[in-house]
Design a protein around this nucleic acid. Structure first.
Length: 200
DNA sequence: CGGCCGATCCACT
DNA sequence: GTGGATCGGCCGA
């Protein structure tokens, strides 16, 4: 097991990174509780030319500025006034590529994850949905800008990172399709930038 | 300023 | 299948 290094995130092809994140472990330490899950659904957002992206048209605002940071930064924003949606920033500083994590298979800390969700049982869809990912992992949009390569946890500040624990998804099992909820993006809504894999 | 709306989820029918 | 929750970001006036 190893924490993904900077060079993983610095690669220029955000779509490839979205595929490569499948099977990796998204881990957090929030309120002193360690939780993790296997990333099982992702979406790529491809910089200033992607109409579905918050950075489309090179629009720099206080919020999207995080997307322009160096690969390996957390970009988290509030959606529908309720949900914190977590993205991994990729590419070199100045290029606003990001991968939205849309689903995890819970692994470590399922007890605290259940507690956070207000549910009593871990169902099959327990970690599916970007809002749920953040809810059960204790991710808050105030964490936006955290570096995924610095352990800031230690029972005080929140920490978030991605680990490789050796799971390899056979590329032939990876499924792609259009991204969810981006109808406003015109032709770009049709791009096959959403990734999952076929479970047997 | 004011108003619209979103990379969603859940309860309810 | 549908609608309400809930509020910051963004744009236009």
């Amino acid at each position: 097991m190893s924490i993904l290094k900077r060079d993983f995130y610095l690669r220029p092809n955000v779509v490839q990174i979205a595929r490569d994140l499948l099977g990796k472990f998204l881990c957090t330490e929030s309120d002193g509780e360690l939780t993790s899950g296997i990333i099982c659904e992702t979406e790529a957002y491809a910089g200033i030319t992607d109409r579905a992206s918050h950075a489309y048209g090179d629009r720099r605002t206080a919020r999207t500025e995080i997307m322009y940071r160096v690969g390996g930064t957390a970009y988290i924003y509030l959606c529908y006034g309720i949900h914190s949606l977590f993205n991994v920033v990729t590419n070199e500083e100045g290029v606003p590529d990001a991968v939205l994590i849309r689903g995890i298979i819970p692994v470590d800390g399922t007890g605290i994850m259940l507690q956070r969700s207000g549910k009593v049982k871990v169902t099959n869809d327990f970690g599916i949905g970007p809002g749920r990912v953040s809810r059960i992992l204790g991710i808050h949009y105030s964490w936006s800008g955290l570096d995924l390569l610095i352990e800031t946890g230690k029972n005080c500040k929140p920490a978030i990172w991605v680990e490789d624990r050796g799971i390899r998804i056979d590329p032939s099992l990876i499924l792609s399709g259009p991204r969810i909820g981006v109808d406003y993006a015109g032709d770009d809504a049709l791009l096959p930038y959403r990734f999952t894999w076929k479970k047997m």
